[in-house]
Nucleic acid binder design. Structure first.
Lengths: 242, 242
DNA sequence: CGGCGCCTCGCTATATCTGGGGAGTTGGAA
DNA sequence: TTCCAACTCCCCAGATATAGCGAGGCGCCG
């Protein structure tokens, strides 16, 4: 297949993603892509803050099931690694030291996940986070060559998969993303860097009572149960920078 | 210029971005791109919510100066709009109602900013946010056609500009992170989603005192002053996924 | 085998946070 | 102008977190 032809097919796929009206369509697109690139597996994985996950892809359903049951989301070095990075990452470059990580890896290969992998982190508004992953079984050189050639295609595909998922899943961001007022941002930021309420109040030169109003107001806007929750959400949604 | 040739040039540009070792190099790349696409302006704009900004691009320096002086960051509908969106957006589709927005628009065109624009939001870890913008003066039909054709190129360029900016941005020295134990991860995670200590203890089926040991131990490992600080750091460092 | 890290549990007292009220000023938007 | 959101201040009682002391069992690794 010539290069030009492939580019045009990529165009088709993106067009199909843009026109999709149901999440199920993503599944067939991703299967087509898996075959097209001749890899073992291809997965789009929505990692939501409220614990719910959505994914489509070609992993063995038994593995997906196990992943959810075991709560591997909090262990998987791919997720944790991509969460801290911006650029796509080869699985080999992640941190697989640590007992839990190695146990996870063994379990994964036992369920047929390839030894090679390449994952692209994607971020949307309000801290939305997703992963687009391609995985395969082959030696390092072959994989290196594959990722080198298709990196840019994969970045675009990741982008459009996420765009479609965002479009089709508006209920994913249930809390109306109310912006925090400047004072609330300052309050949350100072709390996030370890100040106590009294210290924050002193730093902002306001009474502690006033400060409490900000915390409560921010907590309400963020739909949080307590201060720690509010700060966590503010960080996760990118409303404050620590 | 043929399509294939252009693709190869895009390759060159991306390669140059990946190899860049100083932020100044971005400036020459973006000027080359502006000429290549034959548009009026092209801008990469790092928008850190703590107020600091970095940008490179082809806007009139007087306009950039005025933008900073006037604090337009908090008014600019392009910034505000992109902050709420994932996909690239045409300026025409933004909300230009509101007195401040219209005043900003008038000021912008007075400083030579084109009437058409297309901006791509980009997000990195820890709420990092940037914009890649291309702007021009032409009629709607011509602009529609331009964005339709080059959308994917621009998305990729936005991605690589941001990757380079992230790489070259100083002060991003991640502190050596001591790994948290599985129980500590669970503890921090549940606290981050709003559970009180008692609730976490119940959820994990352990005594509240044991839980407290985990919190203190995690706080120590994270170098945190209190629970909120510890949770904030764990999230910001990607040690837990919320 | 002897450390070391991890997991589990106990007590007490103080400091801090939370939740329920209410009230006045300012500046920008409808 | 009228209204609303943001900012500022106040009281109080009960819930919750923190700080200090302790203890024992389990599994891994040199």
């Amino acid at each position: 297949m010539g290069f030009l032809e492939k580019v045009l097919q990529l165009d088709d796929v993106i067009g199909q993603l843009e026109c999709a009206e149901h999440l199920e369509e993503l599944q067939s697109v991703i299967e087509w892509l898996r075959d097209h690139y001749a890899v073992d597996d291809m997965v789009y994985h929505w990692v939501s803050s409220n614990g719910t996950q959505y994914g489509c892809g070609t992993y063995d359903p038994a593995w997906v099931q196990r992943y959810l049951e075991k709560g591997y989301l909090r262990i998987d070095p791919v997720v944790l690694g991509c969460y801290q990075r911006f650029h796509p990452v080869d699985w080999k470059r992640l941190d697989w030291s640590g007992k839990a990580a190695r146990a996870f890896l063994n379990d994964a290969v036992a369920h047929g996940v390839g030894n090679q992998g390449y994952s692209i982190p994607i971020r949307g508004p309000n801290g939305q986070f997703a992963l687009f992953t391609v995985s395969h079984s082959c030696d390092d050189a072959e994989w290196e060559s594959f990722t080198e050639i298709h990196r840019r295609d994969l970045i675009l595909l990741a982008h459009y998969f996420n765009q479609t998922a965002l479009k089709l899943e508006p209920g994913r961001t249930p809390e109306p993303t109310q912006p925090l007022s400047p004072r609330e941002v300052e309050t949350m930021t100072l709390l996030a860097v370890g100040y106590s309420r009294a210290q924050v109040a002193e730093t902002l030169s306001i009474s502690e009572h006033t400060l409490r109003v900000y915390i409560e107001s921010a907590r309400f806007k963020l739909g949080a149960m307590n201060t720690t929750h509010a700060v966590a959400r503010a960080i996760a949604r990118g409303q404050i920078v620590v």
